[in-house]
Amino acid sequence: MIEIRWHGRGGQGAVTSVEMLALAAIEEGKYAQGFPSFGPERRGAPVVAFNRVDNHRIKIRSGVYEPDVVVVLDASLVGLVNVAEGLKPGGVLIVNTSKSPEEIKKEMNFRGAVTAVDASKIAREELGVPITNTTMLGAVIRATKLVKIESSEGPLKERFGRLAQRNINALKRAYDESKVAKAT
């Protein structure tokens, strides 16, 4: 089972990300769970959301404390909250940033693998808004190989209708433009 924690800010669509990833996983016959941090949320404030993906029915019904993957939707959160908290040894950190993955590693003093992509730039160019949830899904797919990139297209089409193609383009660009720094 893979556990993922998404960091974003209220209104950036972290919950939509977990929904889209869960949909892509079940498209492939896998099992998935997605949930927000439980409690009141405020626009702009740091929020988290979670995914579990497995090949078997998921029985666990409690919080995620030691994720395998951490995704950061908003670059300003690095340094503001400890995004690597509880991340398993050998886990993957995926960050929306204009910096290189090596720079992020150094800045955070983080030894694990880092995938970096300038999702804000891609989202501005492809979607016209700096909402990075669907874009970052491309980086997650690249870094984790959890689902095939094609499996995300159906759920995006259903969710975004006529805006789907732009989101798919953004997701594919993030997949291609992600840069990876290995664990050290």
Binding site: V18, E19, I26
Partner: peptide
């Protein structure tokens, strides 16, 4: 049903 663990959780 349980608050959050069911009411706010997405699953197939």
């Amino acid at each position: 049903l349980d608050a959050f663990f069911l009411s706010h959780t997405y699953e197939p």
